[in-house]
């Protein structure tokens, strides 16, 4: 007997769609200067956040976001069945250490910048599968920890090409529940790893766009839906050039995303004023936009049905130096008001 909730090649439909009970979005200083400032729970100006290293600061960002989401729903950590979290650092240390502090049964995730959506999809499956009442999901990134791990030391005088993106400093957390009031997760489409031969680590948008296109097209065809069935199709961090490539690719598959599409990396910064080149990126980028802006729009009913897609570039500095191309992944989740 085929799995009853499985539809098409890679999509699942939830029988009792889990509810987003609460979210929290913490952002750094530069993000706080951007257009989405009013949607954040807190803007933290100090990149160290009172700690003695950036790594500890990122950990504190994530832990505080998770705790804030719990507090908003009046829940204690002991009441949560699973914590699903991940970040960009080696061995996902920000998530591991935040999980140590919270003491919730924990599954560490790595989907690069797609992690928050990977968590949403898995969390919804855990709840709808009858394995949990509450699942807490979180993801974070920090400009300086990511720069130092993936690119150059932050104080090194190097020039960025126009396609470079700015890693968001921020953390987002989502509390999913079996029942309650809030936007619902109705479907999830788990992506395949897609690699169309991009090698430029300074052009992540180009590496990730084919994965986003693949997941969007699979999702729409699995459900027999059209672009117009969604008020918004929101990708994670493709940036300006990645978005252009995504639109062109989807057109070749016969879908015109056009005005319905937006990208968290383009929304979080003002590209004209903020010197971020092609836009924002990093786990924190889709996390804070989803947990801030998107959650608020859905809760207020200004958006009724949204396809959110996390996009992640699955590379490391070593694979890049060894000449490997950059594989990418995209996970999609349908959110309904």
């Amino acid at each position: 007997m085929p799995a009853p909730k499985r539809i098409g090649s890679q999509t699942v439909a939830f029988a009792q769609p889990p509810v987003i009970l609460a979210t929290a979005a913490l952002a750094g200083a530069k993000e706080g200067q951007g257009p989405l400032r009013p949607t954040f729970d807190k803007v933290i100006e100090d990149p160290y956040y009172g700690e003695d290293s950036w790594e500890k600061a990122e950990r504190r960002f994530l832990q505080e976001a998770l705790e804030k989401a719990l507090a908003k729903a009046n829940l204690r950590p002991e009441q949560v069945d699973y914590l699903l979290a991940g970040d960009l650092l080696n061995q996902i240390v920000a998530a591991n250490f935040a999980a140590r502090a919270l003491g919730i049964p924990y599954v560490g995730l790595y989907g690069a910048c797609a992690t928050i959506y990977e968590g949403l999809a898995l969390g919804a499956m855990l709840i709808d599968g009858g394995f949990a009442d509450y699942v807490l999901i979180g993801s974070s990134s920090h400009y300086s920890t990511a720069e130092r791990q993936f690119r150059f030391p932050t104080e090194h005088g190097s020039q960025r090409p126009p396609t470079a993106q700015w890693t968001v400093t921020g953390a987002g957390a989502i509390l999913l529940g079996r029942q309650g009031k809030g936007p619902r997760v109705t479907h999830a489409t788990i992506g395949r790893v897609i690699d169309l031969g991009s090698t430029d680590p300074m052009n992540m948008g180009a590496a990730m766009a084919p994965a986003a296109a693949n997941t969007i097209v699979s999702h729409l065809s699995d459900l027999g839906r059209q672009v117009t069935d969604y008020d918004l199709i929101l990708t994670g961090d493709l940036g300006y050039y990645g978005r252009e490539l995504l639109l062109a690719l989807c057109r070749e598959y016969g879908y015109e995303l056009g005005e319905r599409h937006n990208d968290c990396g383009l929304m979080i910064f003002d590209r004209q004023k903020q010197d971020v080149h092609a836009g924002g990126s990093g786990c924190g980028c889709p996390a804070v936009v989803t947990c801030g802006y998107l959650f608020q729009e859905l809760s207020a009913g200004r958006l009724r049905r949204v396809l959110g897609i996390g996009t992640g570039a699955l590379m490391s500095p070593i694979t890049t130096k060894q000449g490997d191309t950059i594989p990418a992944i995209a996970h999609a989740v349908v959110l309904e008001a």
Partner: peptide
Amino acid sequence: VRQFDPSQPLEMQKRQYQQMVNRLVPRPP
């Protein structure tokens, strides 16, 4: 003429896609 044809074999798709990228991506100033 399609700039990217998803029905082609993967190697062809890669070539077509990288051409798309090269056309779109600006040179530094």
